[in-house]
Design a protein around this nucleic acid. Structure first.
Lengths: 132, 132
DNA sequence: GTTTGTGCAAATATTTTGCACTTGA
DNA sequence: TCAAGTGCAAAATATTTGCACAAAC
Protein backbone atom coordinates (compact mmCIF):
# COMPACT_ATOMS: atom_id res chain seq x y z
CA UNK A 1 0.00 0.00 0.00
CA UNK A 2 2.94 2.28 -0.55
CA UNK A 3 4.16 2.32 -4.11
CA UNK A 4 7.54 3.47 -5.14
CA UNK A 5 6.86 6.01 -7.83
CA UNK A 6 9.20 8.21 -9.77
CA UNK A 7 7.89 11.20 -7.80
CA UNK A 8 8.24 9.61 -4.40
CA UNK A 9 11.85 8.68 -4.94
CA UNK A 10 12.61 12.12 -6.32
CA UNK A 11 11.29 13.67 -3.13
CA UNK A 12 13.22 11.36 -0.83
CA UNK A 13 16.32 11.95 -2.92
CA UNK A 14 16.10 15.71 -2.53
CA UNK A 15 15.45 15.31 1.18
CA UNK A 16 18.50 13.09 1.42
CA UNK A 17 20.62 15.80 -0.14
CA UNK A 18 20.13 18.40 2.52
CA UNK A 19 20.43 18.61 6.28
CA UNK A 20 18.08 21.52 6.56
CA UNK A 21 14.39 21.99 7.10
CA UNK A 22 12.66 22.90 3.86
CA UNK A 23 9.12 23.92 3.06
CA UNK A 24 6.99 22.01 0.60
CA UNK A 25 7.23 24.93 -1.78
CA UNK A 26 11.00 25.06 -1.61
CA UNK A 27 11.25 21.32 -2.19
CA UNK A 28 8.91 21.62 -5.13
CA UNK A 29 11.08 24.34 -6.65
CA UNK A 30 14.22 22.28 -6.16
CA UNK A 31 12.57 19.30 -7.81
CA UNK A 32 11.49 21.33 -10.81
CA UNK A 33 14.91 22.88 -11.17
CA UNK A 34 16.43 19.43 -11.22
CA UNK A 35 14.19 18.59 -14.09
CA UNK A 36 11.74 16.33 -12.27
CA UNK A 37 8.25 17.06 -13.45
CA UNK A 38 6.19 16.88 -10.32
CA UNK A 39 3.04 18.62 -9.13
CA UNK A 40 2.95 20.70 -5.99
CA UNK A 41 0.01 18.70 -4.68
CA UNK A 42 2.03 15.53 -5.03
CA UNK A 43 4.88 17.05 -3.06
CA UNK A 44 2.45 17.86 -0.27
CA UNK A 45 0.89 14.41 -0.40
CA UNK A 46 4.25 12.70 -0.40
CA UNK A 47 5.60 14.74 2.48
CA UNK A 48 2.50 13.98 4.47
CA UNK A 49 2.85 10.30 3.83
CA UNK A 50 6.54 10.36 4.72
CA UNK A 51 5.70 12.22 7.90
CA UNK A 52 3.01 9.70 8.81
CA UNK A 53 5.54 6.95 8.35
CA UNK A 54 7.96 8.75 10.62
CA UNK A 55 10.47 9.12 7.82
CA UNK A 56 10.64 12.88 8.05
CA UNK A 57 10.25 15.39 10.84
CA UNK A 58 7.77 18.21 10.42
CA UNK A 59 7.60 21.41 12.31
CA UNK A 60 6.16 24.85 11.98
CA UNK A 61 8.10 28.05 11.51
CA UNK A 62 7.04 31.01 13.62
CA UNK A 63 4.85 32.19 10.81
CA UNK A 64 3.02 28.95 10.44
CA UNK A 65 4.68 27.38 7.45
CA UNK A 66 5.36 23.65 7.68
CA UNK A 67 8.95 22.59 7.10
CA UNK A 68 10.27 19.09 6.55
CA UNK A 69 13.52 17.22 7.04
CA UNK A 70 14.71 13.64 6.92
CA UNK A 71 16.27 12.94 10.26
CA UNK A 72 19.24 10.86 11.21
CA UNK A 73 17.69 9.41 14.32
CA UNK A 74 14.40 7.63 14.28
CA UNK A 75 13.76 8.27 17.95
CA UNK A 76 12.09 11.49 18.94
CA UNK A 77 14.55 14.34 19.25
CA UNK A 78 14.86 18.09 18.94
CA UNK A 79 16.49 20.73 16.78
CA UNK A 80 18.37 23.97 16.74
CA UNK A 81 17.34 25.72 13.55
CA UNK A 82 18.68 28.81 11.81
CA UNK A 83 15.96 31.32 11.03
CA UNK A 84 17.98 32.61 8.12
CA UNK A 85 19.00 29.55 6.13
CA UNK A 86 17.25 26.64 7.79
CA UNK A 87 20.52 24.99 8.81
CA UNK A 88 19.75 22.45 11.49
CA UNK A 89 21.53 20.72 14.33
CA UNK A 90 19.93 17.74 16.06
CA UNK A 91 20.06 18.16 19.76
CA UNK A 92 18.90 16.27 22.78
CA UNK A 93 17.10 17.65 25.76
CA UNK A 94 18.26 15.72 28.73
CA UNK A 95 15.21 14.38 30.45
CA UNK A 96 12.74 16.28 28.31
CA UNK A 97 10.72 13.20 27.45
CA UNK A 98 10.31 12.15 31.05
CA UNK A 99 9.62 15.68 32.20
CA UNK A 100 6.90 16.18 29.59
CA UNK A 101 5.13 12.92 30.39
CA UNK A 102 5.30 13.60 34.10
CA UNK A 103 4.03 17.17 33.96
CA UNK A 104 1.21 16.12 31.64
CA UNK A 105 0.11 13.28 33.86
CA UNK A 106 0.28 15.48 36.94
CA UNK A 107 -2.45 17.64 35.40
CA UNK A 108 -4.60 14.74 34.25
CA UNK A 109 -3.73 15.09 30.59
CA UNK A 110 -3.40 12.12 28.23
CA UNK A 111 -1.56 11.53 24.95
CA UNK A 112 1.09 14.04 25.82
CA UNK A 113 3.17 15.31 22.98
CA UNK A 114 5.86 17.91 23.33
CA UNK A 115 7.31 20.49 21.03
CA UNK A 116 10.82 21.57 21.96
CA UNK A 117 12.69 23.49 19.30
CA UNK A 118 15.41 26.12 19.39
CA UNK A 119 15.53 28.90 16.81
CA UNK A 120 18.45 31.23 16.25
CA UNK A 121 20.80 32.77 13.73
CA UNK A 122 23.74 30.59 12.73
CA UNK A 123 27.27 31.99 12.63
CA UNK A 124 27.29 32.24 8.85
CA UNK A 125 24.00 34.11 8.66
CA UNK A 126 25.04 36.40 11.52
CA UNK A 127 28.26 37.25 9.64
CA UNK A 128 26.36 37.89 6.43
CA UNK A 129 24.03 40.24 8.28
CA UNK A 130 26.98 42.11 9.81
CA UNK A 131 28.75 42.96 6.52
CA UNK A 132 26.38 42.37 3.61
CA UNK B 1 0.45 55.91 19.88
CA UNK B 2 -1.94 53.31 21.16
CA UNK B 3 -5.51 54.43 21.29
CA UNK B 4 -8.08 52.84 23.48
CA UNK B 5 -10.94 52.09 21.18
CA UNK B 6 -14.19 50.31 21.80
CA UNK B 7 -12.87 47.37 19.78
CA UNK B 8 -9.57 47.11 21.56
CA UNK B 9 -11.16 47.00 24.97
CA UNK B 10 -13.68 44.44 23.77
CA UNK B 11 -10.85 42.17 22.69
CA UNK B 12 -8.91 42.49 25.91
CA UNK B 13 -12.12 41.93 27.85
CA UNK B 14 -12.82 38.67 26.07
CA UNK B 15 -9.22 37.61 26.55
CA UNK B 16 -9.53 38.39 30.24
CA UNK B 17 -12.55 36.12 30.49
CA UNK B 18 -10.82 32.90 29.49
CA UNK B 19 -7.75 30.99 30.55
CA UNK B 20 -7.48 29.17 27.28
CA UNK B 21 -5.69 29.72 24.02
CA UNK B 22 -8.10 30.92 21.37
CA UNK B 23 -7.71 31.55 17.69
CA UNK B 24 -8.45 34.91 16.13
CA UNK B 25 -11.48 33.39 14.47
CA UNK B 26 -12.85 32.01 17.73
CA UNK B 27 -12.34 35.32 19.46
CA UNK B 28 -14.09 37.10 16.63
CA UNK B 29 -17.06 34.76 16.93
CA UNK B 30 -17.25 35.29 20.68
CA UNK B 31 -17.15 39.03 20.19
CA UNK B 32 -19.95 38.96 17.65
CA UNK B 33 -22.06 36.70 19.83
CA UNK B 34 -21.66 39.16 22.67
CA UNK B 35 -23.04 41.82 20.46
CA UNK B 36 -19.83 43.72 19.76
CA UNK B 37 -19.73 44.72 16.15
CA UNK B 38 -16.12 44.17 15.18
CA UNK B 39 -14.40 43.19 11.97
CA UNK B 40 -12.23 40.12 11.70
CA UNK B 41 -9.34 42.19 10.36
CA UNK B 42 -9.51 44.38 13.43
CA UNK B 43 -9.34 41.33 15.66
CA UNK B 44 -6.19 40.21 13.85
CA UNK B 45 -4.66 43.67 14.01
CA UNK B 46 -5.48 44.07 17.68
CA UNK B 47 -4.09 40.67 18.61
CA UNK B 48 -0.91 41.40 16.73
CA UNK B 49 -0.51 44.67 18.52
CA UNK B 50 -1.18 43.08 21.90
CA UNK B 51 1.35 40.37 21.10
CA UNK B 52 3.96 42.96 20.10
CA UNK B 53 3.40 44.66 23.41
CA UNK B 54 3.89 41.37 25.22
CA UNK B 55 0.37 41.48 26.58
CA UNK B 56 -0.63 38.17 25.09
CA UNK B 57 1.19 34.96 24.28
CA UNK B 58 0.95 33.57 20.78
CA UNK B 59 1.70 30.09 19.62
CA UNK B 60 0.90 27.80 16.76
CA UNK B 61 -1.24 24.71 16.90
CA UNK B 62 0.08 21.62 15.18
CA UNK B 63 -1.86 22.55 12.10
CA UNK B 64 -0.47 26.02 11.85
CA UNK B 65 -3.23 28.12 13.32
CA UNK B 66 -2.14 30.95 15.62
CA UNK B 67 -3.73 30.95 19.07
CA UNK B 68 -3.66 33.74 21.65
CA UNK B 69 -3.94 34.03 25.39
CA UNK B 70 -3.42 36.69 28.00
CA UNK B 71 -0.92 35.25 30.43
CA UNK B 72 -0.63 35.59 34.15
CA UNK B 73 3.13 35.90 34.20
CA UNK B 74 4.97 38.43 32.14
CA UNK B 75 8.20 36.44 32.17
CA UNK B 76 8.72 33.82 29.52
CA UNK B 77 7.09 30.54 30.42
CA UNK B 78 5.51 27.46 28.91
CA UNK B 79 2.16 25.73 28.60
CA UNK B 80 0.34 22.44 28.68
CA UNK B 81 -2.53 22.80 26.26
CA UNK B 82 -5.54 20.60 25.56
CA UNK B 83 -5.89 19.77 21.90
CA UNK B 84 -9.64 19.39 22.35
CA UNK B 85 -10.78 22.49 24.17
CA UNK B 86 -7.73 24.70 24.43
CA UNK B 87 -7.65 24.53 28.22
CA UNK B 88 -4.24 25.66 29.37
CA UNK B 89 -1.97 25.23 32.32
CA UNK B 90 1.08 27.42 32.74
CA UNK B 91 4.11 25.33 33.52
CA UNK B 92 7.76 25.89 34.07
CA UNK B 93 10.61 23.94 32.61
CA UNK B 94 13.30 23.82 35.22
CA UNK B 95 16.44 25.12 33.59
CA UNK B 96 14.99 25.31 30.11
CA UNK B 97 16.06 28.91 29.57
CA UNK B 98 19.64 28.25 30.56
CA UNK B 99 19.79 25.01 28.63
CA UNK B 100 18.51 26.65 25.44
CA UNK B 101 20.96 29.53 25.61
CA UNK B 102 23.84 27.21 26.32
CA UNK B 103 23.09 24.72 23.55
CA UNK B 104 22.59 27.53 21.07
CA UNK B 105 25.86 29.21 21.95
CA UNK B 106 27.71 25.91 21.81
CA UNK B 107 26.81 25.69 18.13
CA UNK B 108 27.63 29.30 17.34
CA UNK B 109 24.03 30.45 17.08
CA UNK B 110 22.86 33.88 18.18
CA UNK B 111 19.51 35.34 19.23
CA UNK B 112 18.35 32.02 20.57
CA UNK B 113 14.66 31.64 21.11
CA UNK B 114 13.00 28.47 22.29
CA UNK B 115 9.62 26.92 21.84
CA UNK B 116 8.65 24.49 24.55
CA UNK B 117 4.99 23.51 24.66
CA UNK B 118 3.14 20.41 25.77
CA UNK B 119 0.00 19.26 24.00
CA UNK B 120 -2.40 16.63 25.27
CA UNK B 121 -6.01 15.76 25.96
CA UNK B 122 -7.38 17.05 29.24
CA UNK B 123 -9.35 14.78 31.56
CA UNK B 124 -12.68 16.30 30.58
CA UNK B 125 -12.08 15.92 26.86
CA UNK B 126 -10.77 12.38 27.33
CA UNK B 127 -13.96 11.49 29.21
CA UNK B 128 -16.13 13.06 26.55
CA UNK B 129 -14.31 11.04 23.89
CA UNK B 130 -14.81 7.81 25.84
CA UNK B 131 -18.62 8.05 26.11
CA UNK B 132 -19.94 10.67 23.69
C1' DG C 1 -7.80 68.92 13.35
C1' DT C 2 -4.68 65.36 12.77
C1' DT C 3 -3.40 60.96 13.34
C1' DT C 4 -4.56 56.35 14.37
C1' DG C 5 -8.01 52.75 14.10
C1' DT C 6 -11.77 50.37 11.64
C1' DG C 7 -14.64 47.92 8.20
C1' DC C 8 -15.05 45.70 4.14
C1' DA C 9 -13.63 43.59 0.26
C1' DA C 10 -9.94 42.01 -2.33
C1' DA C 11 -5.34 40.04 -2.30
C1' DT C 12 -1.86 36.54 -0.45
C1' DA C 13 -0.26 32.29 0.93
C1' DT C 14 -0.45 27.77 2.20
C1' DT C 15 -2.46 23.49 2.07
C1' DT C 16 -6.31 20.35 0.64
C1' DT C 17 -9.45 18.10 -2.49
C1' DG C 18 -12.34 16.44 -6.67
C1' DC C 19 -11.83 14.06 -10.57
C1' DA C 20 -10.16 12.05 -14.83
C1' DC C 21 -6.06 9.93 -16.15
C1' DT C 22 -1.50 7.09 -15.24
C1' DT C 23 1.14 3.72 -13.53
C1' DG C 24 3.37 0.35 -10.42
C1' DA C 25 3.09 -4.28 -8.52
C1' DT D 1 -5.60 -6.00 -13.89
C1' DC D 2 -6.79 -2.40 -10.89
C1' DA D 3 -5.91 -0.17 -6.61
C1' DA D 4 -2.92 3.50 -5.51
C1' DG D 5 -0.67 7.61 -7.15
C1' DT D 6 -0.59 11.87 -9.99
C1' DG D 7 -1.65 16.38 -12.22
C1' DC D 8 -4.27 20.25 -12.59
C1' DA D 9 -7.38 23.38 -11.38
C1' DA D 10 -10.63 24.70 -7.99
C1' DA D 11 -11.71 25.00 -3.05
C1' DA D 12 -10.76 25.75 1.66
C1' DT D 13 -8.17 28.19 5.38
C1' DA D 14 -5.82 31.62 7.59
C1' DT D 15 -4.03 35.94 7.48
C1' DT D 16 -2.81 40.50 5.39
C1' DT D 17 -3.59 44.77 3.02
C1' DG D 18 -5.59 48.97 0.34
C1' DC D 19 -8.51 52.46 0.88
C1' DA D 20 -12.38 55.41 2.22
C1' DC D 21 -14.45 56.55 6.41
C1' DA D 22 -14.84 57.13 11.59
C1' DA D 23 -13.18 58.14 15.97
C1' DA D 24 -9.67 59.23 19.68
C1' DC D 25 -6.87 62.58 21.77
Amino acid sequence: MQRMTRQRSAVTEVLADTDDFRSAQQLHETLRSRGHGIGLATVYRTLQSLADGGEVDVLRTTDGEAVYRRCARREHHHHLICRGCGATVEIEGPGVEAWAAQVGAAHGFEDIEHVVELWGTCARCAARAAHP
